[in-house]
């Protein structure tokens, strides 16, 4: 049973049956999928995707899926976390000169405890580290979902008859309609020729 009424969503989004998303076919093993994916790409298709129950190694190269650049986004936030931690500890402990300029409730209240300095890099390390990690984790987590465009309630691939088996035991190959070479009839034939079962032109 689907979570949402797909027809209703399509109505709201104004997606008619005339719009084609892709030609899709399914395979029973990851090896077949990779082989077929490579062949389809050699035919000249560029807008390819696969849907698999687990990450299939080799499919990225076969379909020409680029490396993830998530790490570059994340490192920016990691450094932000470190800086914020340093600022927090320096500001709350050591900032006395501009004390009177800071709004009430935010003003530092310097406490000398055990003769330790109000701020020093050495004792700030644990919190610098923890906040770096916290920011990295949050950036990775949210960055992942933003990058891949989830969560979403509807995706045209849901119209494929066997889409639910892509999270179970089937390996689906997708030739998207945005491909310049795409022709529903031809793409389906190509999928069949590389050994795909249950080939369908998927609307949406």
């Amino acid at each position: 049973m689907p979570q949402f009424d797909i027809e209703q969503i399509k109505d709201k989004l104004g997606i008619g049956e005339d719009k084609v998303y892709a030609a899709m076919g399914s395979f029973t093993t990851p090896e077949e999928l990779v082989k077929a994916g490579r062949k389809v790409r050699e035919m000249g298709y560029t807008k390819l995707d696969a849907m698999t129950p687990f990450p299939v190694h080799g499919i990225d190269d076969a379909l020409g899926i680029p490396y993830s650049k998530l790490g570059w986004v994340v490192i920016f936030f990691s450094i932000t976390g470190t800086c914020l931690a340093l600022f927090l500890q320096w500001y709350t402990g050591g900032l006395q000169m501009i004390k009177n300029l800071i709004p009430f409730g935010l003003s530092p209240y310097p406490l000398v405890i055990g003769g330790k300095p109000l701020f020093d890099f050495s004792f700030s390390i644990p919190i610098d580290f923890e906040l770096t990690v916290a920011f990295t984790a949050l950036a990775t987590f949210y960055g992942l979902w933003i990058t891949i465009g989830l969560p979403r309630m509807y995706h045209p691939s849901m119209n494929y008859r066997n889409a639910h088996r892509a999270t179970d035991d089937r390996f689906l190959l997708v030739i998207e309609a945005t491909d310049p070479m795409f022709d529903a009839q031809r793409a389906s034939e190509h999928l069949r020729s590389v050994g795909a079962d249950e080939v369908e032109v998927v609307a949406g």
Partner: peptide, 30 residues
């Protein structure tokens, strides 16, 4: 979250998982 197992998603997903594992390792020791 609407996960559909797309190969493009898996690629980012694995990268994210690796980063999370990579930072959890020093974290757990810390």
């Amino acid at each position: 979250l609407g996960w559909r197992g797309s190969a493009r998603h898996w690629r980012h997903y694995e990268s994210a998982y690796l980063i999370l594992a990579g930072i959890s390792t020093p974290l757990v020791l810390s």
